[in-house]
Amino acid sequence: MKSFLIYLAAFFANNYFLFAAEAGMPQLDPTYWASQAFWLILVFTILYISISRFYLPKIKDNLNNRENKIKEDLENANKLKEQAEIKLKEYELILKNAKKDVSKIHFESKNNLDKDIKFKKDKIEKEIENKVVKAQKEIKEFKKNSINSIKTISGNIASEIIKNITGDKLNESSIKAAVEDVSKEGISKYL
């Protein structure tokens, strides 16, 4: 309200301005109005020209640069993300194949191993059986041989004993027959 009255005062005569200025409103003293107008226009023109010519384009450039950079970076990031996803898929595929291969190899090698073990086991069992049969045969032969040699040795011993006791030499075939006779009864006891 007060300000409006002040403005109304501005429309009145020049004398009134001087009166108002004296009454305490330096704004209404027209002494320096021309000077203020002149300096305002000068300063504002310089300000306007330097702002519009130099500073605003620079700031605008800078803002645009930043926006472009952000856009570019985002695009790059998206591109990289896509690539990473593709790589991940590839990796997963490779992993899956590898797992398949592993189980296949595992299965195969297990089969082979089983077969091999079985084959070797069979072979060894057969060998052992052969050896057992052979050993039994050898034992049998040895038994037979030992009976013969015992007979010969006991015949010799008997003829020696008779010779020593009687001083006579007995017929060898009779001694043999006697040993044979004894051994028929007793030798099986020791063998």
Binding site: W39, V43, F44, L47, Y55, N65
Partner: peptide, 30 residues
Amino acid sequence: IDLSFTNASLFMVISASVILLLLFFGSKEK
């Protein structure tokens, strides 16, 4: 017409200089 430099003119110049300095340093390094 009196176009003398006054304290009002001085503060116009000061305000404009502050603006220009701010914008100068604000747009110097991109």
